[in-house]
Amino acid sequence: MDFYLDTADLEEIKRLNKLGIVDGVTTNPSIIAKTNRDFKETIIEICSIVNGPVSAEVTGQTVEDMLKEARDIAEWAPNVVVKIPMTEEGLEVVNILSGEGIKTNVTLVFSVAQGLMAAKAGATYVSPFVGRVDDIGEDGIELIQNLRTVLKNYNFDTKIITASVRSIGHLEMAAKAGADIATIPGSLLPKLWKHPLTDIGIEKFLSDWEKVAK
Rank of each mutant, 00 (worst) to 15 (best):
G137H: 10
E210D: 12
W76Q: 11
F205S: 11
R148S: 04
H170D: 14
Q61P: 00
K103L: 11
V126L: 04
L5R: 08
V54M: 01
G101N: 14
T42C: 02
F39G: 05
D199P: 02
E172L: 14
T62W: 11
G20I: 06
M1F: 07
V133E: 11
F205A: 15
F156I: 01
V50D: 05
V54H: 05
Q61W: 02
D38C: 05
S98P: 00
L206M: 14
P78D: 15
T124A: 03
G52C: 09
K204R: 13
I181H: 05
N79P: 03
D2N: 09
A123N: 03
T183P: 04
K191D: 15
K34S: 02
E138F: 09
K120Q: 08
T104E: 02
K194P: 00
V130G: 13
T158V: 01
V212T: 10
P85M: 10
K103N: 12
I200Y: 14
S207H: 02
I31Q: 13
E12Y: 00
D199M: 02
V126I: 10
R15S: 11
A213D: 09
E11V: 00
L206K: 13
T26G: 12
K34Q: 02
C47N: 08
A163S: 14
M117L: 15
A118N: 02
V80N: 04
S111P: 00
E11F: 08
E41L: 11
K176W: 01
A182D: 11
D208H: 08
D208N: 15
K214G: 12
E142Y: 10
N95I: 01
L116S: 13
M86C: 06
L192T: 14
G101H: 11
V54G: 11
R166M: 09
G178I: 07
L189S: 02
S111V: 03
T7A: 09
K152F: 00
E12F: 01
G131K: 07
N28V: 06
I43W: 01
A113R: 08
P128Y: 01
K159M: 07
